[in-house]
Simulated scan of single mutants.
Amino acid sequence: MDKVPMTIRGEQELRTELEVLLKRRPLISQAIAEARELGDLKENAEYHAAREEQGICEAQIRDIEYKLSVAQVIDVSKMDNTGKVIFGTTVTLLDIDTDKEVTYQIVGDDEANIKSGKISVSSPIARGLIGKFDGDEVVISTPGGEKDFEIIKVDYI
């Protein structure tokens, strides 16, 4: 089984979500029991809704437990700050064509959220940045065409 890279924050968020789901489990079971007492299960909407909620909750629990079991948690703050772009680093880039600065943290696939500046390690931008150094100019092939960037800063936070 291959390990999947994950940041410390990503692991913490998954563990928090798992705790919430595990606390919902008995509440859902109680709702099923109460719905059973209402009578005929064939036409009991509360019972069917509670059973559906239970199925969704159990699937989410299994999914999170699996992700945690294959996670390789990487603490980038304990790495040597050499200016090299690696998994977990936060990279500030200058788009050479537009003179705009953008900042991305390179995270695991499940943690990626472009709105919060987190890009997947398997994204074209991250793949083009991994292994490069602070001050390097890189050409990255994106779905919109090739983009020229200069790496302004690499943070190991």
Score class of each variant (00 low, 15 high):
S141C: 08
Y47E: 04
T142G: 05
I56V: 11
I130R: 07
V73I: 08
A50C: 03
T103K: 06
T103W: 06
S29T: 04
E37A: 14
E43L: 12
I157R: 14
E58R: 09
T16N: 14
G55A: 15
D63S: 15
D97H: 04
E46H: 13
I28R: 01
E101T: 12
D75N: 13
P5A: 09
I86H: 01
G144T: 14
R36L: 10
M6S: 10
S69C: 07
L94F: 08
Q72P: 00
V107M: 00
K132V: 03
E137V: 14
E52Q: 13
I86L: 02
E37C: 08
P26H: 14
N81V: 06
E101V: 06
I152L: 12
N44D: 07
N113C: 12
S29H: 10
G145A: 15
E19T: 14
D148T: 09
P5M: 05
E137M: 07
E101I: 08
V102T: 13
E137L: 03
G108Y: 00
A33T: 05
K147F: 10
Q12S: 15
Q54P: 08
I56N: 02
K23F: 04
A59H: 03
V91T: 00
R24Y: 14
M6I: 07
F133P: 07
I64K: 01
G135Q: 13
T89W: 01
I61Q: 06
S29Y: 08
E17G: 05
L22W: 01
Y66Q: 11
D63K: 14
I96A: 09
I28K: 04
V20I: 07
E34G: 11
L38R: 09
D148M: 11
I8H: 02
